[in-house]
Amino acid sequence: MKSAKELLQHFQKQLAAITSLNTLEELKIEYLGRNGRINQQLKNITQIDPSERREFGQELNTLKEQITQEIELKRKKLLQIESTKQTIDTTLPAKSYPKGSLHLVTYAIEEISHIFEKIGFIRMSYPEVEWEFFSFEALNMPSDHPARDDFETFFMDYEPHKEHGKMVLTPHTSSGQNREMRRLGKPPIRMINIAKTYRPNWDASHVPMFHQFEGLCVDKRINITHLKGTIDYFAKQFFGEERETRLRPFHFQFTEPSFEVDITCDICQGTGKVNGEKCRLCKQGWLELGGTGMVHPNVLKAGGIDPDEYTGWAFGFGVERVMMMKPGIGLNNMRLLYDGDIRVLEQF
């Protein structure tokens, strides 16, 4: 029968020789297992003088604890060695998962819808092939308005409607205004219409089809401050909190007063200067965002709404335009979005 001390020395010798987790596990069983050396020793306790049994037991317990600790220590060391043994060239290419793309306009539409949804505007959809009435008359654009001629609007080869005139491709999303007024019957109206629009213009920087988003708000006591605040809200949400907006007088048939919205330039932070030079992107720190205004009383009337009781505002901005103005997009020619080159589209 070996003394505890001898047993420990023997164990430590064996332990020092171990280089793998498997043999360590074997050693552990050899000493600490059910039939291991420690338990074997314990079985011998009956052969010991009863007065020494207590001390014998304590010694064995201490030994067991020490062996347990040393094995754990050794295991950690071995694991450390094990994990450094394994090496990977982490710069090798990864397993590839499919990566598709969405059209830039899709992202813009989703973001715009979300921004307006938060303040209670519902997204709607209306005909894109429309009667002249909804595209023009209902928007206070008389028949001699230049926007109605062949150079500004696509017409369809189709028998005109008795009341609503010729069939056109919507040159703007504003044709949805009258449609929404008719659908609801009376205010309040909070509508956003994002749709395809068409103009006979196709060259290096123009496309015959593009997208607009139209906002319409009609209610009692709606005034210019609401238009201003809502557009400022949109601009800050879409472009960034640090951006400022301003309104400049403009002219549109379907709004009165009419405005053009400008937003501070992100390149020069609205200063108009980059490193002391004139900013090449903007005019004195401002970029044009689009057109807006208070809904013209004739437009309200055409929608069956009393302009003395209700007022409203509306805007129509270009989807591609605002998206291209978003910092970090880096695309500046709308045509690229519609030339159908996979190498362009797959980037988004």
């Binding site: 303040i119 209670g120 509508m191």
Partner: peptide, 27 residues
Amino acid sequence: EDIIEEVARVYGYYNLPNNISPLIYIK
């Protein structure tokens, strides 16, 4: 409204506060 526009623009749109349109639920 045309007269109102003349007054508003010269008075200055920059002088007007920003207010979000009053919230209301539309289905």
